[in-house]
Simulated scan of single mutants.
Amino acid sequence: MATSTHHTARTFDGTELAFETIGSGPPLVLVPGGPRDSRYLEDLGGLAESHTLIRYDARGTGGTPAPADPAKYAYPSLARDVDALRTHLGTEAIDVLGHSAGAVVAAVYAGHHPDRVSRLVLVAPGPDFFGGGEDVGDLLERRSGEPWFGEVVSAAQGLAQAGPESSPEEVFALLDRYVPAAYGAWEERQRAHAATQRTQFSLEAWKHFHGNGDRTEPERFLPTLGQVPAPVLVVTGAADALTGVSAGDATAARFPSAKHVSIPGAGHYPWVDNPRGFSSVVAEFLAR
């Protein structure tokens, strides 16, 4: 991996965002999913060879402290953190890449500040916000021959029944059992990547990500996406049994100028399963 340097940037409520820069070339701000710290993004399958990746830790993860007010874990506040990085960088507009839940944050930021985003990349966007997702069950069923399939189905049922009274240990145990479905394969590389997730993930941030928990909340923000003039690339993994492929089509349809590319053999973390396939698609888009 390319050499990294560590920094902090003060955001709107005084929180110090911890971030690092990796690689060289034009800057690309990475918005992590989870919410979690940014280490799991690695160098995005070698994308740091052509770009300077600005990789920051979400609130309450990694080197970024938790907010005093849990309401500031909600994605509209997280979108304001992206602008704090832009201000810190001293530039009028930035290229932004958001992964999973970070795709929501990046999209909301672009919708609110369309003049501050030059190019937007949304990786593995979820159907809860953007729509789609009807293919998740089929994508999982296609892998019914895998030795982990029974455990994953059982964990999915447990997660569906989990509520606010569930302990962090119970939720993390279920997530651990479900995680093979998030990858295009379940080999040594994927296992090593998955093994780091528990220490990076913030269950508290996850609970408050949607604010008041009202799933109609996206309706406040989705109309703004139609006003984003920047070119948009939506990337999914063709084997992503976590958020699916159809969510990529639904996401791209929200923007005036967007295309959807699905990476063969990849799951929810396409830079892990097919690093060159992923990084080449993103680098080509950013170079236009």
Rank of each mutant, 00 (worst) to 15 (best):
P125M: 15
F149C: 04
G150Y: 01
G145M: 09
A155N: 04
D135T: 00
P127R: 02
D135G: 01
A124L: 14
V136H: 07
L139K: 07
L139C: 03
G133M: 08
G150N: 09
W148I: 11
E146R: 12
L139S: 04
G131P: 15
A155K: 02
V123N: 12
F149K: 02
G137D: 10
D128G: 14
G145C: 08
W148Y: 09
E151T: 05
G133C: 08
E151P: 01
V153G: 03
P125Y: 14
D138H: 02
L139Y: 03
G126M: 14
D128S: 15
E146L: 06
F149Q: 01
W148F: 06
F130C: 06
E141K: 15
F130T: 04
L139P: 00
E151G: 07
F149Y: 11
S154W: 08
P147G: 11
A155L: 11
E134Y: 06
F129A: 11
L139D: 05
G137A: 11
P127K: 02
F149W: 05
G150M: 08
W148H: 05
V152N: 01
W148G: 05
F129K: 05
G150K: 06
G132C: 13
P147C: 10
G133I: 03
G126Y: 04
V153N: 03
R143Q: 14
A155I: 07
E151Y: 04
G131M: 11
S144D: 05
G137R: 03
D135I: 00
V123M: 14
V153E: 05
S144F: 00
D138L: 03
P127I: 01
G145F: 06
V152S: 02
D138R: 02
D128N: 12
E134A: 09
G137K: 03
E151L: 04
W148V: 15
D138N: 04
F129C: 13
G132V: 15
D135M: 02
F130M: 10
E134W: 06
R143D: 12
V153K: 06
A155T: 05
V136C: 05
P125E: 15
R143A: 13
A155P: 00
V123S: 15
D138C: 01
E141M: 09
G132N: 12
R142M: 07
R142F: 07
G126F: 02
G150F: 02
E141G: 06
P127Q: 09
F130I: 10
D135E: 12
V152I: 08
A155Q: 03
V136T: 10
G131L: 15
S144G: 08
V123C: 14
F130W: 15
E134G: 10
G145P: 09
D138I: 02
G150H: 05
L140W: 01
R143P: 11
V123Q: 12
R142C: 03
G132F: 14
G126R: 15
V136K: 07
E134L: 08
E151I: 03
V152A: 08
A155V: 06
D135C: 01
F129P: 00
E134R: 06
P127G: 12
G145Y: 07
G145E: 08
E151D: 10
E134H: 09
G133E: 07
D128E: 12
L139M: 08
R143W: 11
G131N: 13
S144R: 06
R143L: 11
E146S: 14
E146H: 13
G132H: 12
P147F: 09
D128T: 15
F129T: 07
L140E: 00
G126N: 14
P127L: 00
E146I: 11
F130K: 04
W148E: 05
G131D: 12
V136R: 09
V136S: 08
